[in-house]
Amino acid sequence: MADSNISVFPLHRRRKLVESIARDLESKNEEDANAFWRSTVKTILIQLSESGIAPGLAEQEIRTLLRAVLGDIAARSAKLGR
């Protein structure tokens, strides 16, 4: 299958998605958080692939999503004075 030129609404701009993942990650210990992240990424990559998104673009979306999630965690932590 050839790479697609389809673009998606950027994952990192989906505030509910970013905040939900961030909260879930914060509530887990390191090992469980890693497993949760891997599972989440796998699900999202499958969804993007089924939507016709090229693998390279899908991986880029995951990288920017991770930065947004980590930024959300950092912002919440700073607000709480941790």
Rank of each mutant, 00 (worst) to 15 (best):
I53H: 04
L80F: 11
V69L: 10
P10H: 08
A22P: 03
L70V: 07
S49C: 02
S4T: 11
V18S: 02
N34I: 12
S77R: 15
A58E: 01
E30H: 09
Q47P: 00
W37T: 01
N5F: 10
A58M: 03
A35K: 14
E30W: 08
R82M: 14
K28A: 08
F9S: 07
P55S: 10
Q60V: 00
L66T: 10
Q47R: 15
R67K: 15
E19W: 02
E19S: 09
L70S: 11
I46L: 11
L80I: 08
R23A: 15
G81Q: 14
E50P: 00
S7Q: 13
M1A: 15
E50C: 02
A68H: 00
L48I: 01
I21S: 07
R38D: 10
I44Q: 07
S20C: 02
A74Y: 04
N34L: 14
S51C: 06
S4Y: 00
E30T: 14
M1G: 15
D24V: 06
Q47K: 15
A68I: 08
K28D: 00
E50Y: 06
A78P: 07
T40P: 06
G52D: 03
K28Q: 09
T64M: 05
A75S: 11
I44H: 04
V8K: 04
T43E: 14
A58R: 01
S7P: 00
S27R: 14
A22W: 05
I6A: 12
L11H: 02
W37K: 07
I73Y: 08
